[in-house]
């Protein structure tokens, strides 16, 4: 437990000094959002399209930043140093919490911007925020694990999106569906299926990652 917290703190400290991941992820989100907004123009898209666009922006922005945390360890050759002092599961969880915070920060910026620029009318904030909150666990859990895998491979950048897309697709599909429902209905029960799926996905992917992380990390 203590190790998880220490690794998390260390990554925050490092990030605070370089601001690499946070810059990459925020700029990516803002650039794609404005690109989407320009190309749509004054046309008001349906909630279905908007929900999909929102998740596509969220997904690809997180793809630009989530892998950084492991790639940095490999590229600065600190991975071995860390390996000498830490248990694998605490490394995974420490990095997972860091990515979780990164995603929450991204959403804090992205959600108000998206609602304002794209004229996205959320009827039930309860469903919307709950979707975001639960979805984050799945995104960060799967993303962190795939980041660990690709940090050991030779071509890192392009591979991350290729590998994480099939793994994170359930989050994307249920997330889009739940977001659409947030814009259409007020009752929480309407999005029950999606939220359950997101929750189950988050739990399973994190448990599987903790079990499998050993094999990625230990040579």
């Amino acid at each position: 437990m203590k190790q998880i917290w220490l690794i998390f703190l260390k990554d925050i400290q490092q990030e605070f000094k370089t601001r690499y991941a946070i810059n990459a992820i925020m700029l990516f989100a803002i650039v794609t959002l404005s690109a989407v907004s320009f190309s749509i123009g004054a046309y008001t898209a349906t909630t279905r399209v908007l929900a999909a666009l929102f998740w596509i922006i969220l997904f690809f922005s997180s793809m630009s930043g989530l892998s950084h945390i492991f790639i940095r360890e490999e590229e600065t050759q600190t991975a071995d140093t860390l390996k000498l002092v830490a248990r694998p599961s605490s490394i995974y969880l420490g990095k997972f919490f860091f990515n979780l915070i990164l995603l929450i920060l991204l959403e804090v910026i992205l959600i108000p911007l998206f609602i304002a620029i794209m004229n996205f009318k959320v009827v039930s904030f309860q469903i919307f925020l709950l979707t975001m909150f639960i979805g984050n666990f799945g995104l960060a859990g799967g993303g962190t694990m795939v980041a660990a895998i690709i940090s050991k491979a030779s071509t890192k950048g392009a591979l991350f999106t290729v590998l994480s897309f099939p793994i994170l697709l359930p989050v994307l599909i249920s997330g889009i569906s739940a977001t659409r429902k947030a814009a259409e209905s007020v009752k929480l029960m309407d999005a029950q299926n999606e939220l359950q799926a997101l929750l189950a996905y988050g739990v399973i992917i994190i448990v599987a990652s903790i079990l499998l992380f050993d094999f990625v990390w230990n040579e």
Binding site: G142, I149, A153, P166, A208, S209
Partner: peptide, 13 residues
């Protein structure tokens, strides 16, 4: 190792 881990990760989804 990496390929096996990825296979299993895909399998749980």
């Amino acid at each position: 190792r990496l390929a096996a881990v990825y296979s299993l990760l895909a399998f749980v989804t």
